[in-house]
Design a protein around this nucleic acid. Structure first.
Lengths: 91, 91
DNA sequence: TAGATATTTAGAATACTATCTAATTATCAT
DNA sequence: ATGATAATTAGATAGTATTCTAAATATCTA
């Protein structure tokens, strides 16, 4: 997935809000879109960035697209942070 | 200092490399600059971004400027990450 | 099949970021 | 004071990101 993509994905406030919303469980693109003052097209762009970074997954459910948090990236993200501050030797 | 500034600061690979270099202790602007294939002016820009985010501090030492890691932000950064993945209720 | 709803894709505009060169400020040493 | 060294600031440019509108695709229902 790439560290750079991960950090870049987390650098946008809209995308972080999306992640927070998904903490509560899967949501359709439309449900997520209602919470943001921008078009669905713009949101789709953010979903794609989050997917490329491995932070979310998506799955079609009829005419809806269901997005969910990929919690397994959490450990990776935590390790990256620790690396930056010297708490372990990993990369 | 602002979460947005923190995430933005971490989103650039040069700035993350600077942080890694500072894990080993304080370094002057010139010492840091030698490790990067860009001008000192460009590095100064990155130092300023890191300072605004509270990730580093600087201090004049004669004609040198000494940069050092501000490890106290580590906890804050870790909390922000946890928030995004639902491990605690903060923020 | 036709229409309605949900979402994505394509292309363009605007704003932001990283980087450069040139000029400036600050400190040291003679 | 003068010149040398260290670092920053200012202004410009190129690349990237965010957002929009309009068009396209996919699925459901009648």
């Amino acid at each position: 997935m790439g560290n750079q993509e991960l950090f870049k994905a987390l650098a946008d406030p809209t995308r972080r809000d999306v992640l927070r919303m998904l903490r509560g469980g899967s949501r359709t693109a439309g449900e997520l879109a209602e919470a943001f003052p921008m078009t669905r097209a713009s949101l789709t762009h953010h979903f794609n960035v989050l997917k490329s970074a491995g932070l979310v997954r998506s799955e079609r459910r009829g005419q809806h697209q269901l997005y969910s948090l990929n919690t397994s990236v959490f450990e990776e993200a935590a390790n990256l942070l620790m690396d930056l501050f010297g708490r372990n030797g990993k990369d």
